[in-house]
């Protein structure tokens, strides 16, 4: 990779696309909050129960909210021809895909971490529990976006791929969900947060290559 310029432009383009449409930022936050809001209705308003299951409910909502915007991540690039230009560029398409995923996570994933304490408060989770939980939401959320990015890249050429992407991505979410939820009870002391980080690093190593291969296919 000799020329970093395409990476910066891909990053800027991803951010500005999300700002321009507006919904890119609001959709996951709204979905995340809405899912968490439904929980007291379905499971009752007993404070003890909610405080106990609250962090786990937020994990589920986070995983689902990560799936909401995945459909558009690479599909827009395929339709407006940006993908064809990237394939011709000297820059590695895997790194471009990783940059896009990072930008996508900053827009659609990171705000969810900031929302988590507020929703946690709604569910009666104590604030001091939320600090390690927020770190885990950040690492786990990025892992979701990496595997979700692979699914989105594979389905880039498919119209109305939202459910297909979710179906492909869900089995890959399992380790991050398990390590993340276990880390809630263990806090920073246990091994689960380390396993979660390891799962994230593994995704960081494998997912960009898979996204690159899938995007090259989609561009043909």
């Amino acid at each position: 990779m000799s020329n970093p310029a395409p990476l910066f432009s891909a990053f800027r383009q991803a951010l500005s696309e999300a700002w321009a449409s507006g919904a890119g930022l609001l959709l996951p936050i709204g979905f995340f909050s809405g899912t968490a809001m439904l929980v007291p209705f379905t499971l009752g308003d007993e404070a003890e129960t909610l405080a106990k299951i609250g962090p786990g409910v937020l994990w589920l909502a986070l995983a689902l909210a990560s799936l909401v915007t995945l459909e558009r991540v690479f599909q827009a690039d395929l339709q407006d021809g940006a993908l064809d230009l990237w394939v011709q560029e000297e820059a590695s398409i895997s790194l471009i895909a990783l940059t896009k995923t990072l930008a996508h996570w900053l827009i659609s994933g990171a705000p969810l971490i900031l929302m988590a304490p507020i929703l946690g408060r709604l569910l009666g989770v104590p604030f001091e529990d939320m600090v390690p939980a927020m770190a885990a939401y950040g690492i786990g959320g990025f892992t979701f976006f990496l595997w979700g990015g692979v699914a989105a890249a594979l389905a880039a050429g498919v119209a109305r791929a939202g459910l297909l992407i979710a179906l492909i991505a869900i089995p890959f979410f399992v380790p991050a969900i398990i390590f993340g939820t276990l880390s809630l009870t263990e806090g920073f002391d246990g091994a689960s947060i380390l396993f979660l980080s390891a799962a994230c690093l593994f995704a960081l190593g494998v997912a960009p290559a898979a996204m690159g291969a899938a995007l090259r296919l989609a561009a043909e």
Partner: peptide, 25 residues
């Protein structure tokens, strides 16, 4: 064929990690 091949290979290297995480759970 190509998309399926990518998915199957990515899936296979994930299977041990999924198995490990479920065992830990």
């Amino acid at each position: 064929a190509r998309a399926g091949a990518i998915l199957a290979m990515v899936g296979l290297i994930n299977v041990p990690i999924i198995k490990f995480s479920v065992d830990l759970w």
